[in-house]
């Protein structure tokens, strides 16, 4: 499985200074990853222990750097959802 979808990678490359709302899946202890990311200046919004994932906000350049980390399993955009009633 690829770590990042091609269209997201392209967006990060095209706009490296923009801020992105992302969900990353990681290996290892979630608390340690959170501490490491915060130390690196990345805003960690939420932890999801069911899938060992984090919601983060960072620049496109920072996100691309993250994809090189061995403990990073995958990066996805945080997408909008809505109610299905009317």
């Amino acid at each position: 499985m690829t770590k990042i979808a091609a269209d997201l990678r392209q967006a990060l490359r095209t706009n490296p200074d923009d801020s992105y709302d992302l969900i990353i899946r990681v290996e290892g202890d979630l608390a340690e990853r959170t501490a490491d990311l915060r130390a690196a200046g990345i805003d960690v919004k939420r932890q999801f222990k069911l899938t060992n994932s984090l919601q983060i906000r960072c620049s496109g350049a920072e996100a691309l750097r993250l994809t090189r980390a061995g403990w990073l399993v995958r990066v996805d955009s945080n997408k909008p959802v809505r109610a299905f009633g009317r």
């Binding site: 945080n78 909008p80 809505r82 109610a83």
Partner: peptide, 30 residues
């Protein structure tokens, strides 16, 4: 009626922690 995927994820995790046996999601991405 709108939100983000991460909000739903938090809601599902909370429900699991609360001992939910059934979770109903009348929502999603288009």
């Amino acid at each position: 009626g709108s939100g983000m995927m991460s909000d739903v994820m938090e809601g599902v995790e909370w429900a699991v922690d609360q001992g939910a046996q059934v979770i109903s999601l009348s929502l999603g991405e288009a």
